[in-house]
């Protein structure tokens, strides 16, 4: 049996001023598999995060829905919360009820509330299907190839090399310097280009 926790954020009045957040939480609590459906003023704040961690531990939740802002903003934040609570960070799904709901449907609170419910139901459906994922690790060869030995390539090569890293500076012409070495004085200071 899936053990889902749903955490709905007010984002102050950003969501809470449009969407009936406690009403949504009550509605979502009725979905099968949802063991915990609760709301809080700012879910990303420290008390908000602690609330999630406590619920994960108390209710032995194994997957989490956070309904708040765009995942493009806070997905990493909440993945870390899951990790801190001992869950796989990829057992998270977010419902975007701010950018995609309260902020654009502010004039119709009822419709916004209904849409928020639908968006959270989507997230619950997805989270039910999630499986733990594990990041793979690959080594890094500490050496850089710079293609082109003009001003851009030389400058990049020097900046990298000055930090102690090895650089290969490749140039197709017999000599480096590119177009810049052809120039006489350069604006706006009129100093030489060598």
């Amino acid at each position: 049996m899936k053990r889902i926790g749903v955490f709905i954020c007010w984002c102050g009045s950003n969501i809470g001023g449009v969407v009936d957040v406690p009403g949504v939480a009550a509605e979502i609590a009725g979905i099968s598999g949802v063991l915990c459906s609760t709301d809080y003023k700012y879910m990303c704040s420290e008390p908000g995060q602690d609330k999630i961690i406590k619920a994960i531990k108390d209710d032995h939740l194994d997957r989490i829905v956070v309904a708040s802002c765009s995942p493009r903003l806070h997905e990493t934040t909440f993945r870390k919360v899951l990790e801190r609570a001992g869950l796989n960070p990829y057992m998270l799904e977010m419902a975007n009820i701010r950018e995609h709901c309260s902020w654009v449907h502010a004039s119709d609170k009822e419709a916004a509330t209904q849409k928020a419910i639908a968006l959270i139901k989507r997230a619950v459906a997805k989270v039910s299907q999630l499986e733990p994922l594990f990041a793979s690790h690959i080594p890094v060869t500490k050496r850089t190839l710079v293609v082109g030995g003009g001003i851009a390539g030389m400058q990049a090569a020097l900046d990298i090399a000055d930090a102690g890293q090895e650089v290969l500076l490749l140039e197709r012409e017999p000599t480096i310097g590119g177009k810049m070495a052809m120039l006489d004085k350069t604006f706006p200071t009129l100093d030489c280009s060598a």
Partner: peptide
């Protein structure tokens, strides 16, 4: 997301 940030209203029919 940008439409949201810019508070550009549109009908709630799209999910």
């Amino acid at each position: 997301d940008l439409a949201g940030v810019s508070r550009m209203p549109y009908p709630p029919s799209i999910r």
